[in-house]
Design a protein around this nucleic acid. Sequence first.
DNA 1: GTTAGCACTCTATGATAACGAGTGCTAACA
DNA 2: TGTTAGCACTCGTTATCATAGAGTGCTAAC
Lengths: 339, 339
Amino acid sequence: MLNERKKKILQIIIEDYISTAEPVGSRTIARKHDLGLSPATIRNEMSDLELLGYLEQPHTSAGRVPSAQAYRFYVDSMIEPDTLDDNDRTLINTLYHEQQRSIDDIFLSTAKILSQMTHNVSMVLANQHSVSRFCYLKFLPLDSNHAILCIVTDDGNVNNCVVEIPAGMSVKELEYMAGRITRMLEGKAVTDIDKDLLEAVQSAVKDDRLLHSSLLHVLRRMTRPEKETFFMGGTRQLLSQPEFRDMEKVKNLLGVLEEEKVVRNILKSGEEGDGLRITIGSENKFEGIQDCSMVQATYRLNGKIVGTMAVLGPTRMQYGKVIAVMDYLHKYLKTILNN
Amino acid sequence: MLNERKKKILQIIIEDYISTAEPVGSRTIARKHDLGLSPATIRNEMSDLELLGYLEQPHTSAGRVPSAQAYRFYVDSMIEPDTLDDNDRTLINTLYHEQQRSIDDIFLSTAKILSQMTHNVSMVLANQHSVSRFCYLKFLPLDSNHAILCIVTDDGNVNNCVVEIPAGMSVKELEYMAGRITRMLEGKAVTDIDKDLLEAVQSAVKDDRLLHSSLLHVLRRMTRPEKETFFMGGTRQLLSQPEFRDMEKVKNLLGVLEEEKVVRNILKSGEEGDGLRITIGSENKFEGIQDCSMVQATYRLNGKIVGTMAVLGPTRMQYGKVIAVMDYLHKYLKTILNN
DNA sequence: GTTAGCACTCTATGATAACGAGTGCTAACA
DNA sequence: TGTTAGCACTCGTTATCATAGAGTGCTAAC
């Protein structure tokens, strides 16, 4: 375990590096902070810290830079979340009140705030349907041989699909079939679709193949991940970060971020954890973002995931600030979502 | 008017610059192309072309670079669209057949192809509803005091919104009201909503304010631009272009592209023109993309706009190739959309 | 255990020179 | 009169070199 002095020095190095992006040297530390220690002493401590794996040297005559291990230690045991100052708070409030028509607008604002305040890429994934339940299935007439298959959920959503009315089938029969299927699905959560249920439904319409495939199509669409709204913003902010002065790095990262499916997966995989989840550098399993850090928060309503948001940036990230902003947004979202 | 020789030389310079991104000098031209002219003669012609506004010199001892005016002339009077080679054709076919479930998938593929084949940013805006017409309005029951207001259009779409059932209103009354409104809207195109119509509808429900505002909300949502699906891709490709080696430029452009609304506007404003529309450099009215060129194609079905796609890149763009790809995609989309 | 001192390392910076591609001009040529 | 060879000149790029500055590690003294 590190003694107090080593801890203190490590913390100074990390925080200095986070704010300047320059390797930190012993002289600088001695000058800037009144530790009552000479550069030489600090040098010795730094040498130890390097051996222990907390620091790295870009080259012999540069200062030292925190390792991923150092950030992990920092985040786990010595970080104290910033408190947002008044500027930040009013900025958040302004951005939120710009327009707050739909849920989507709210999440869009959230993403904007996140990237604007942390100068990193922000991502928000909102799973609006995770808590909804089936109400009933109904056919709405369209023209002489088409109808609209509608599945209504208790949150008031209508999932629909045009179907061809099987030749020789009367409206009555169609209604009867809708009633049968309704009874099977009624009250079930959309996330609870499973093989058994699908098979049961299949049996109810097995005499008509077209109808069956349409029905499955709607059911599947209701639960498939693309149904979740997704926002991302702030790629521009990244370019201002000194670590991305190298074009190759930017290209790599943008390549990943451009693939919406990949990003969705990254977010999905981080949902399991409860509350805040911080992934540093190579702790991340996904290719292309392994020299980045990610701070992710998942929101639950009655235990079910309703959304997740994340900030992605260089490992040299203002963890304290990011955590503070996320905390604040969390509370905000909670009250909004409860209405 | 330029004489043939000047034209020829201008064309060589433009095409050379497009492929190399380096200023073109008289010696290079003489060496690469067998014009039967010495560098000195070419130099004289280039000097003339510069005076006429077709060429620019980055600095005295560099070669010359085509001006926006030159590109305009090139595009208007001397370009011959490339023909796609077999590689390109099979690449397109492969990408299209990856998955073609929904209309959205098709447009997504289109955007991907565009950016991949032209190495530029691609944007696609699909207005799926522009040709649809009202069928009827219906209330679906939800719970004891809520219903779902549904507006069905003849393309089989259901636009819905949860409404509170006014206290003391019976199901019968609700159905009667739905009937009245249906008769007003029946057969009208969604794009034909105007003030008069809205006022007429208002009178039908004026005794209930909540219902009225919900109804307006749905009607408005059906026509508002955000309803149009939008895709963009290929920002990564841009970074490979030598003109974007300068970080500031990249930041500016990304800043614009990140604002989905702005990009939608840019696309919208180019829809008026028929067929292909090419905007070069400062011909573009939008800030931030004024040193870019844009090639845009708008698709119509029965005279109504159903979608528009565009390629955005540096003014030094392979216009011939871009046009060829767009032409090919146009035909492809036409046949698909007709089903 | 702490610190001053010193030699050493390595990057960044700036100056200088050489190079090369290109231009414009002039004079000669067909 | 249009074309071309020749030449001086310009200017960005590249290479080389010296220097300054920040930092390190080690040793010896406090």
